[in-house]
Each structure stands twice: as C-alpha cells, then as structure tokens.
Simulated assay, not measured.
Amino acid sequence: MIPKSLKKEILLLGECKAMLRKPKYPVLSQPNEVYRSVPVHEEDEIESIKNGTEEPFTNQFNLVKSNDLEEEHNKSVAIKNSAMERIFTFGDDFISTVRTAKIAEGIYDFRIDDIGVKENVDTQYGMKDQYVIKFSLYSEKTQQITPLIVFYNISSHQKSELMMFLSAFKEVFKGQRITMNYLIGKTGHAKIYHVFSEAGNAFEKIEILNVENPNT
C-alpha cells in the first residue's frame, strides 16, 4: 500500500510534466519558422527604413506622389496668377470683368493628350454634346509647355469647327475609319489665335497647320 505522502508527490510530479508539455507559442508547421508578433513584411519595412535601403518600388511610389503634389501646387499657383490678372471695369452703375487670353498668339508644337465628351451643354446653338480636347503646347521661344483645352460642338456639318479641325488629319487617316481616340497622342504644329465675344472676352483658338505622320 502506497503511503499518502508519496501519492501527493506522484500527483504533483504529473502536473509539472503536463505543464512542461504545453507550448509557450502556437505550434508551427515548419521547423524553421519563428513566432513573430509583427508580420514579416512589416519588420522588413521597418528595418529597411532604419537602414535607408527602401525597396526601389517604394522610392518610385514616393517620387510619383511628390511629383503629383508639385504638379497640383503649380496648377494652383497658375490659377491664382490668372485670377489676379483679370481686369475689372467700373461703369456709372455697374462693375464688369472680362476674360483675357492666357496663351499668346503664335506657332506651337502640339500634342493631343486626351479627348473626352460633355453632354447636354447649353450653347448659343441650343443644347449640344461637345468633344473636350486637351492639348499640350510647346513654345520654342519660351521653351515652356502650356496646357490648352478646346471644346468642339459635335456636328457632322462640313463647315463646323469640328469638321474643320478633323480635316487637318486627312492625310494621316486617309482611307481609314476611326474614332476620336485615334487622335490621342498625335503631334504636329499649330497656330494659336484669339477670338473675342461681344462682351469683350478673349478666347484661344487652335488651327492645326500640319500633323506628323508616323507612316511616312
């Protein structure tokens, strides 16, 4: 018969062994894995930042964001400068302001950056859909690139502004059927001139002088 004191020692020993068998960390499926409280990629990122060895894509991402912020800042400054140049006329019983042209008349290198559509625009000819064409203009005189947005009422009339604009691309697309998207990326030379409304507002117009043909 086993003494009571010995029984207590055996029970205590069994409990101690059971406690030793309980893992301190979760059981890992791979023998080389190590328990981490921070995900691997986060630790690598923290370490790379400390050492100044960020991955190339991280630096590129930051650079793009920085460039975007700088571009937005430049646009904001340009808009403010344009507003500061507005002319106000004081009459006897009224105050009026007119729009001034922001791009000087002359010859420019152009590139078509994008083309969109505005629907149901209230024009002097009634409600019209319009193509919105975004240009980049380069001046050899100033060596600067200036954006220009031109609106064309969508019309099939051969004497309409849209058709007159498209006629400049005849040689490039001769014998083809295209959509407006085919014009995106096209380059050439253009003349900027100003037109004036009855109220005295000045607007930029573009005349395509020639289009570079990649097939020639």
Rank of each mutant, 00 (worst) to 15 (best):
V121T: 03
I107W: 07
V132L: 14
Y125P: 00
E207K: 15
F135D: 07
R36A: 03
L183Y: 08
L209G: 02
K65M: 10
A78Y: 04
I10D: 07
H157A: 15
P147D: 00
V150E: 14
F61D: 12
A190Y: 02
G116I: 02
G185P: 08
N59C: 04
F135P: 05
L12R: 03
A104N: 12
E72G: 05
K22A: 14
E171W: 07
F151R: 14
T179A: 04
K65P: 01
S82I: 08
E43Q: 15
L69N: 08
M84D: 15
A83M: 12
V117R: 09
E198Y: 09
V38P: 03
D129K: 07
V77S: 03
P56F: 05
D109A: 08
Y35G: 01
N62E: 10
S167T: 11
M127G: 04
T100P: 11
I87C: 11
K50H: 13
V98P: 00
F135A: 03
T53A: 02
Q124C: 04
D109R: 11
L148C: 05
T187P: 00
A83Q: 05
R36T: 08
A190L: 07
G106C: 10
V150A: 02
Q30A: 13
H194Q: 09
H157R: 10
L166R: 02
E42A: 03
K75Q: 09
T100Q: 15
V121H: 04
V40K: 09
L148Y: 08
N51P: 03
G106M: 10
V121R: 06
D68P: 01
E72N: 14
N81C: 09
S160I: 00
N62T: 04
N213V: 04
Q30E: 13
K65I: 07
T146G: 02
Q158N: 07
K4T: 11
V117S: 01
D122S: 10
L63D: 15
H73N: 08
Y125S: 11
I107R: 13
E43T: 06
M163F: 03
E71L: 09
M19L: 15
T97E: 12
D68N: 09
Q176E: 13
